[in-house]
Design a protein around this nucleic acid. Structure first.
Lengths: 208, 208
DNA sequence: AGCAAAATTGACGGTGCGTCACCATTCGCT
DNA sequence: AGCGAATGGTGACGCACCGTCAATTTTGCT
């Protein structure tokens, strides 16, 4: 004689089911983070990830299609947490220098912050591959968009936005890698260098 | 009196033996080039390479330790053939602009020239992995060295050579990638952009 | 309680890896 | 030439991982 809640067949699940699903997903994601950090992207296998979890191998594929997809998920997650701060810093920028420095600065700071990445990078297998690890790549998803906005605001000159974004990304990546080879990594110096180079260069660009 | 140890260990092989060895090595190298170009680095397996060859699987390992090692060999080979032209262009450079333009120009021209690379790039598997394919990366092997020399010659200002090289490589890579997304790719425009950016930036760098 | 949908499990066939015992060819020497 | 030794090719072997799937357990709902 209890009044049970009624549910139609297509209704989204509630309670235990959803919680369990979320927990499993989290477990896989966290394990993947650890394993990627430990062995690098190339060396880790789907098996490694699930072994770092109480789940069975088949379960992995209920949540992700491949190790690439977990990686993407981790990246997206990190990007999501990083995005607001980065965007805010850039949108608050009143000068061109602030815009550029905010971008490079937060990037190098984040790279330097994640200690495991350097080790993972070093242990990487491929010849000279550059993997955009989640922590590193996160903030770039919307850089191009912000660059265009900055151009409209007059913060940046009207040059080829694609090339400009590409150059910014390239400088950031390669200098970050170089920075990590140094002991100790000096994000401030890297930021100063990249910012000065980029600011000086922008001024000389042909209008695009 | 019979059954003496016959040959000294250090004697170099001559004739047929050496020829066969060289032929096999070439066959593997050429097959690897084709397969890498066809399927991209990530997707090709050692088996793919040897199947594109009349040799047996075990034979591969008499010549190379892994697919990475073949890749390195291809890269070295390509670098060797590319080096003279690039070095000459850079050593001939009388002005800073010539030095920078020569580097970017030959890079973008080479990238644009190898049509198969773009396809391979697109077919790449990893999340956002950038593989420095042999044809592309070749010219960069000694860029750092040339940068240092240019600084000594006074062509470039005395800033942090590692960072400067890294920035140059980063700009070149990322802009090349962007360039290849455009139709048709315009190496001259890319060169103009990269050169202007870099030249303008150098002037503003803090002495390192 | 009882049934259906959802989710988990681990075994399975398929494939690539790197090794190794076997065998053929070539080498150095008489 | 002829012979024993060394070099080098061969492909089957054992191992690991992949992605799937039928069987089983768990959950949601009446």
């Amino acid at each position: 004689m209890e009044a049970e809640p009624q549910r139609l067949p297509g209704t989204p699940p509630s309670g235990k089911r959803a919680i369990s699903r979320e927990q499993n997903r989290r477990q896989i994601l966290d394990a993947a983070r650890r394993v990627f950090a430990e062995h690098g992207y190339g060396a880790t296998t789907v098996r490694h990830i699930i072994r770092a979890t109480p789940l069975a191998s088949g379960t992995f594929y209920n949540y992700f299609k491949s190790k690439e997809e977990v990686f993407q998920a981790i990246r997206d997650e990190t990007a999501l947490s990083m995005r607001p701060a980065l965007r805010e810093a850039r949108s608050k920028a009143g000068t061109r220098e602030e815009f550029v420095a905010a971008t490079f600065g937060s990037f190098f700071a984040n790279v330097g912050g994640s200690a495991g990445e350097a080790a993972a990078r070093r242990r990487n297998d491929a010849p000279h591959v550059r993997v955009d690890t989640p922590e590193i790549v996160a903030g770039f998803a919307e850089l191009g968009e912000d660059v265009r906005t900055a151009m409209e605001r007059g913060l940046l000159p009207p040059v080829d936005a694609d090339f400009l974004t590409a150059a910014m990304v390239g400088i950031a990546f390669e200098i970050a890698e170089m920075m990590q080879k140094q002991t100790p990594p000096d994000p401030e110096a890297a930021t100063r260098f990249a910012t000065a180079l980029f600011l000086g260069g922008i001024a000389k660009l042909p209008a695009g």
